[in-house]
Design a protein around this nucleic acid. Structure first.
Lengths: 224, 224
DNA sequence: AGGCAGACTTGAACGTGTTCAATAAATGCC
DNA sequence: GGCATTTATTGAACACGTTCAAGTCTGCCT
């Protein structure tokens, strides 16, 4: 009657219980107010047991990252499958990003501020975040691919990463946005997306060729 | 022989001792490694006494902000008093900012990440930071005033704040910069300043008038 | 079956930031 | 000078994140 459950599967269940409890409590009462003791109690395990699966309280956030990106991907699918204009695709993906983060607005504030610390494994530039980051950049590559876009190859090549950075900027703004329903963030997306698209298209202009080259040189230098 | 020292002056001395100990230890051994107990011991007071002057460990950082801006102002003075070109003035002020922060590079990482939290009083957008922020923006206003610059009034009016934002971006990059002597940050300044100046000048072009107007509209909307 | 190795679990203990009731020192008032 | 009030200081106590030596369980080998 012990069931077909392997030991690993049992452990996996414990792990999942901890994550579920943690993310729910983070959402409902905030990051600081949620204690590791409470998470463990809620998950039905001993306090110290959580540290067998997660090296720290912050480490639980990586799990949020992962689930978050999956949700973003799913929410972006409709737009990516139907829209063909760059502006529409970009706008849709960015709005989806804000949409799925909505329930975590307050929590995300703490989250992204912790993540801002360079030495933190939560930093979007850290090696630990590399899978999530690459996945996100790939999403913006798909945004571009699905659109008919004529730009210099040098621009096109760096565009996914630049759009990802742009999305990080939007998120940063969203974190600070206290307007009802974070409407200002939506407005920021709606107003900056056409501008961004326009700037991208301008990169073809002869007259701005040197500016474009300069921008590209800086981007390349910055990436080390 | 008790001296002319007033009570307030005595308290002020205690306060200063705490700040001195804190900033020195932050610089020497990092933020986390420096305990409130150690700060108090070093300052020659009881642990709890530090909380009479500072509501939290983070609150000690505001003091860093204040001293930091004063140092930046002083370091910028030579450039502001001699240079007349916008690029040279801007470049000098930004390099000065990096210069004076150098000893605190590691500490600043933690600092600015804490500051990134919107609800934190350390946030550069918080009411508590308003004096420091306004002072910083005023500095960039002086950068502009001292230069001969012909741009639309609408642009000029928003320029100090935009340059301040630009400087925050530089600082953000610097925080992440692990290159020796943070040379990449200096390079970023040197390469983006001419670009920024160029873009500012471009705002006069008829052909880009609508882009300029769009940017201004967004900026105004965002400031809400 | 018996027991072994490793995966998993426990809860007490440590050091931390922070609070607070109690105390001392300094000041104002007569 | 002596009392009352405000300012300043103390250190023990609290809850937290985290660690760890000790325990329990599970699948496997003989």
């Amino acid at each position: 009657m012990s069931g077909p459950e392997t030991r690993t599967a049992r452990a996996e269940a414990t792990r999942a219980a901890i994550v579920d409890a943690a993310l729910r409590m983070f959402r409902e009462q905030g990051y600081e107010a949620t204690t590791m003791r409470a998470i463990a109690r809620e998950a039905g395990v001993a306090t110290g047991n959580a540290y067998y699966y997660f090296s720290s309280k912050e480490d639980l956030i990586q799990e949020f990252y992962t689930r978050n990106h999956a949700a973003h991907l799913a929410a972006s699918r409709p737009v990516l499958d139907t829209e063909t204009g760059l502006a529409a695709r970009l706008r849709g993906v960015l709005r989806a990003l804000v949409d799925i983060n909505e329930p975590y607005h307050e929590f995300a504030a703490k989250l992204y501020s912790r993540a801002a610390e360079p030495s933190s494994p939560l930093s979007p530039f850290s090696p630990e975040s590399s899978p999530t980051r690459d996945a996100a950049i790939a999403l913006y590559a798909e945004v571009i691919e699905g659109a008919h876009l004529r730009v210099p190859a040098a621009v096109r090549q760096r565009l996914p990463e630049l759009l990802w950075l742009y999305s990080m900027g939007i998120v940063l703004f969203w974190v600070y946005d206290q307007s009802p329903g974070t409407e200002r963030t939506y407005r920021l997306i709606d107003s900056t997306v056409p501008l961004a698209v326009r700037l991208i298209r301008l990169s073809r202009l002869r007259a701005l060729g040197s500016v474009t080259r300069q921008v590209i040189a800086i981007v390349d230098d910055v990436r080390g």
